[in-house]
């Protein structure tokens, strides 16, 4: 379980970083998306991996906290997903505007002279 998760985070962030460093604006945005998936999974893993445990405790009486998953990272991930989704959408609009204004999808707005 730990191995699979860390492999997934590693592969996602490696491909994300490679794409962010590419000169095409669409590659950059896909790279940022992949990076944000990796980061979200990383936040999730910081609550420790507890398979099959609910995050919400029943009301009243004594409960054994070891039987439950940590709910806070799940809440943090939810917030992070919403925020990164919104900013990525905004970035997409700017990307399209740049494409329309300059006629190229290079991140600098002009092709490098060869």
């Amino acid at each position: 379980m730990e191995i699979i998760l860390s492999l997934a985070i590693g592969v996602l962030s490696a491909s994300g970083i490679w794409l962010v460093l590419r000169p095409r604006s669409f590659q950059v945005i896909v790279g940022l998306c992949l990076l944000s998936y990796a980061v979200n999974m990383f936040i999730f893993s910081m609550g420790r991996l507890t398979p099959g445990a609910p995050p919400i405790m029943p009301k009243g009486g004594f409960v054994d906290p070891t039987l439950y998953a940590d709910p806070l990272p799940q809440a943090l991930v939810l917030t992070a997903i919403v925020i990164s989704f919104a900013t990525t959408a905004l970035f997409l609009v700017v990307l399209l505007a740049s494409r329309g204004l300059t006629g190229t999808d290079h991140v600098d707005g002009k092709e490098r002279s060869r």
């Binding site: 990076l35 990272p73 990164s84 905004l90 990307l95 505007a97 740049s98």
Partner: peptide, 23 residues
Amino acid sequence: VRAGMHYIAVNLAASLLFLIGVA
């Protein structure tokens, strides 16, 4: 628009670093 695109990309990447640190 060009400066804005660079600014947004840099700050999105920085926000991801922020989240890793917080986590």
